[in-house]
Nucleic acid binder design. Structure first.
Lengths: 269, 269
DNA sequence: AGAAATAGCTTATGCCATAAAGAGATGAGA
DNA sequence: TCTCATCTCTTTATGGCATAAGCTATTTCT
């Protein structure tokens, strides 16, 4: 199931995301001191999600990790939706905000993309949070700002900026999703990856004998896959190679829309 | 929540997907005649998902649409997971399998991409089914085969085929997700789109006064957005333009990896 | 007619988010 | 010092979900 982000009360969500300080009149209020913080809850929730998939993320599970009941979390977070938003943004804090442009914009773009992909692979549940809505919090915004800086340095023509950004995000997410699935398939079934694939291929061949006739190009494509070599699982390597290849294709397209370097240093946006 | 596909018993799933005829010895079995078919259930489930999001897809809801209880569906489908797989594949039957190559591979690729994107927008729940696993059923396979035919005609060099296919799928899915979100945001809040955005922008400006200082390029990017013109919502148009732009960038990159036309007619894969 | 097999029903289990209401702690003002 | 409003956290309840288990009624074969 996809968790759709940004569905809660927008004001509360934004205030939490940007950690807008609560009205300080309530500072010396009576009552017990809060035993938890939003950050502690978010960290616990991330730990729970990291340990399984998004399905395992229940308020109960998060509460248990903190030695509380599920309900106690609602004191800090209006609902699970807001919590997911907070988790999503917090995870993006892990990725570097600055990218070295001294090696050229292209190297920086590759670094950005690989860094983001690595983040998604460290926290695959991020891919289960729909990315299909505008900015949420400061850290996600930082990732966007980082890629904008790179494209700015590249001198990309203004009308191409939005499409380029969207394509880069889509590519990174799509590739990470494929790689994450490869891992989870290997992990779930216990079969170390090659067997998983041969199992499917064998089944398909038995159940659909005319597959190669109906889908000749697909059949050739899967037959053409190189044998697994080295310790890295085959699926994972294929996913990574498809990513670097796709990234190269996309960056070529972007490059053709940049002003030649050495021009005026005008900011393009 | 994301529904991860392909998690059930692989043999049963594949047999259902490819509608492998059941062992015909069981044809004249005793017992009441089946009152439903797998196809009827899949169609009903698609209708339920179309009417809401994936969250509204419960076995109960599907059963009710067919005048049955939730449990009766389990006679035909092993679990909800298999049902989701079947829905996913069935929906892909809507997209054309053949693409006219007489206008050149590039026009065909655009037609393929726009057709797939339109499918995702007709059935936004498709985007909530993780695409991160290899081929499932015949119709999804047909979509893959179609794009392979196009890239084959383009004379794309073999090593670039996988990356290109992956990038194209990622781009289409990513763009469709953005557009689907734009629609659902407009639909959910009732605000016709422009207001939704200005609400967020205003909130952000109030809660985070230093936004433009911290994220100058992001701020400029959103300020630079052209005003809404015509009946089409602004978000939707932006999403579409980002898509066509991204597609153009990607196809440029692909084109640079093709053999010049007029070469030998060798199949490349 | 009787036996066997099967579709679809009811019921039960154990999850889930979260509403509602209460218990206990704490600090401010009297 | 006492009182009470306020706050955290708990317990309990509600209504949802997938699906396991067992039942009933129907159909066909012997």
């Amino acid at each position: 199931m996809v968790v759709y982000a940004g569905q809660g009360d927008p004001e509360k969500t934004l205030a939490l995301l940007w950690r807008v300080p609560v009205d300080e009149g309530a500072r010396t209020a009576p009552g017990p001191k809060p035993g938890l913080t939003v950050d502690a809850i978010v960290d616990a929730a991330i730990a729970v999600a990291d340990a399984g998939t998004m399905d395992g993320l229940s308020m109960r599970a998060v509460g248990e990790r903190l030695g509380r009941t599920a309900m106690s979390l609602y004191t800090y977070v209006p609902s699970k939706r807001e919590l997911v938003d907070l988790m999503y943004d917090q995870a993006h804090a892990e990725t570097p905000a600055e990218h070295d442009l001294s090696g050229g914009w292209r190297a920086a773009a590759e670094s950005w993309a690989h860094g983001l992909r690595a983040l998604y692979l460290r926290h695959p549940w991020l891919l289960q949070v729909s990315h299909a809505r505008p900015v949420l919090g400061p850290h996600e915004q930082g990732v966007l700002e980082a890629v904008l800086r790179i494209l700015d340095a590249a001198g990309l023509e203004p009308v191409a900026v939005r499409p380029a950004v969207g394509s880069l995000f889509s590519l990174v997410r799509g590739s990470a999703q494929a790689a994450a699935e490869a891992r989870s398939a290997a992990g779930t079934t216990g079969t170390p990856d090659r067997e998983w694939w041969t199992l499917r291929a064998g089944l398909l061949h038995r159940l659909v004998p005319d597959f190669a006739d109906r889908f000749p190009l697909s059949a050739r494509l899967s037959a053409q896959a190189p044998p697994s070599a080295g310790p890295e699982p085959r699926w994972e390597r294929e996913a990574r190679e498809a990513f670097t290849g796709g990234l190269a294709i996309l960056l070529d397209g972007i490059e053709s829309r940049t002003r030649p370097p050495g021009g005026s240093g005008t900011v393009i946006l």
